[in-house]
Design a protein around this nucleic acid. Structure first.
Lengths: 341, 341
DNA sequence: TTCTCTACTGTGAACGCTCACAGATGCATG
DNA sequence: CATGCATCTGTGAGCGTTCACAGTAGAGAA
């Protein structure tokens, strides 16, 4: 602004030092916390920085510190989930913003193919990022082990299944959320409660099913395996599962579905089968995604605190980078009542 | 793999040189295209790289070349659009992958608030990225001008409106797509064709409306302003617009809606008004988003080639970084027939 | 006074790479 | 047999930072 012709070479720490009448070292100290710097020197440096428009060269800094001051967001999900699931958007946005607040850029990495996986791992293992926010719910994902082995700080979204490696993660309390929903269905008078689960190699799949079973047992209801159908979180799989349930147990009066997207499919299936929701059958979802409000009827569902999950992931990762031990953070869910149950 | 204990210090170009029995310079040349290197030297270096597990230190390289070998994906849309619009996902994913193929990491930046905007601009203007993939359709977005002024290579998604700065962009042929849809409606016998436009400060808003008007004129139909309602791309705005249209012109037999999301809202409104689609009123959407197949009835719509848009954006940006002049790339759209029209 | 301690400041020396340049080699040409 | 040219190779310098270290000054204690 003040010096419009400063397009040429960007100012270096040297320029600032000369401008402020101090040495590089002093400027560097001001830049990194300002300890052991006299007030006058600090003021002079600050002014010089403002005058020169100096911005630190992160490459030079990284070269010597060995840190990159950047973090990777690594997605190893199959791509369809990334598209269909609106939660990823929230997660990604909130992580980006939480990091931006600390001036840490987020590198987006997608490891769909084997080639991409190799490439990204190579990049990460070379130390080009300080840590990894990992979104992967495959049971036994080799990426998790590789990263852990390479000593890269990692925080996963959701509990990594089938991992011997001790790894930090942040997750919603799936089991408790499922319990809340099934209790709600019970409380509204339903007694033949079925469920559509997620894939059983994902934490959301197993935990929500466990919560369902526990709550039935808690109320003395029989846990009938005919009432359990498995989906893959897609809308179509929900539709299929609902048809299966209707055939196996036509007398069901409620279904707890492990995701809103599948619940939409369930609603479709019930509509074509002539069953009214919630009059004939109550439907409970999970996620509180946009799909929940746009479906007919709007879904009663379990809200996952994605914003908080994101900020906790970032906080935990930064702590891990700073040397803390890995930790698991479990966040509470919340029942959202709408019309479907 | 071969040397398991190589956790200590990562190999440098020096280690590779020693291992291969050549000088740093030769290794560097192999790394950067391999010109002016004898086959034997190249083979020795390749072998040494494999043996040492060497990966180039990008910070050191960037320090001297002045390039970062990274690119920013900058989103200056209001956040709701980012969430609601599934196109962003496709765009983001495809850009990430197209860049990954060239080993260029993508930095995700979101400039929602004024503070974020300042922060991101500072980062970009400091030369920390080589170029910017810009997603912003605000008319007269100040970010566009700032980036252009700073001499940062930029490629926008969609034509930047109200910009004096000559800036490269990639866009679908909105106008032609709109023409295709309205021609299709006409061809199926509709004569009272209304439209729901997007915001008129976005290229999609103005261009699709223009295509609509042109096609009506082309067929000698009157261009009745009562048949034009404006939305903001959200589902709710589509619902509102449909109600307005129904009130102003109850005799309409078709609506061209400028986005699938709004078209969903239109379908909702028609359903509650007791109008059957497509029997009473045909509805045409735009985007071919996931919403198009999941709505009832499935939407006849215009497919935007998001994958190609992404790869073209990346290609164009890379060319721009390499010194080429900015260019505009317009890609064809495609009519997708389903049941709503 | 002299010594010690604290607060502050400046000065090489790296970090790992690329680039310009100088030197060496081999082969064809005059 | 010298010269030119193209191909290949090694060397030193330097990119912009941080860090360890040495050094200065001033205050208080012995």
């Amino acid at each position: 602004m003040s010096t419009p012709a400063s397009r040429r070479r960007p100012a270096t720490i040297h320029d600032v030092a000369r401008e402020a009448g101090v040495s590089r070292g002093t400027v560097s100290r001001v830049l990194n916390g300002g300890h052991y710097v006299s007030p006058t020197a600090k003021a002079a440096v600050d002014a010089a920085i403002r005058r020169t428009g100096y911005v630190v060269n992160r490459h030079a800094r990284s070269l010597i510190t060995g840190k990159s001051d950047s973090v990777a967001f690594l997605l190893t999900e199959p791509q369809e989930r990334f598209f269909e699931d609106p939660n990823f958007n929230v997660l990604l946005r909130a992580c980006t913003q939480a990091l931006a607040a600390q001036d840490i850029p987020l590198l987006l990495m997608i490891a769909g193919t084997e080639d991409e996986r190799r490439r990204n791992l190579r990049y990460i293992e070379a130390g080009h990022v300080d840590g990894v926010l990992l979104v992967s719910s495959h049971s036994g994902d080799p990426v998790v082990a590789r990263l852990h082995e390479a000593g890269v700080p990692v925080v996963a979204c959701g509990k990594p299944l089938g991992q011997t490696a001790k790894i930090g993660y942040v997750a919603a309390d799936d089991r408790d959320g499922a319990r809340d929903m099934v209790r709600h269905l019970y409380a509204t008078g339903r007694r033949r409660i079925a469920t559509v689960t997620g894939p059983l190699d994902t934490p959301g799949g197993v935990e929500r099913l466990a919560g369902y079973r526990e709550t039935l047992a808690e109320h003395g209801l029989p846990v009938d395996e005919l009432l359990v159908a498995t989906g893959d979180y897609s809308r179509a799989s929900g539709e299929d599962a609902a048809r299966v349930l209707l055939e196996r147990a036509p007398d069901i009066d409620a279904v707890f579905v492990a995701s809103d997207l599948m619940a939409q499919g369930v609603l479709d299936a019930f509509a074509s089968a002539g069953r009214r929701v919630p009059e004939d059958i109550a439907v409970g979802g999970f996620d509180d995604s946009p799909a929940a409000v746009s479906s007919r009827p709007p879904l009663t569902t379990i809200r996952q605190p994605w914003e908080r999950i994101s900020t906790e992931m970032v906080r935990t990762l930064l702590a891990r980078i700073a040397g803390e031990d890995p930790a698991a953070v479990i966040l509470p869910t919340e029942l959202v009542r709408r019309e479907s149950a």
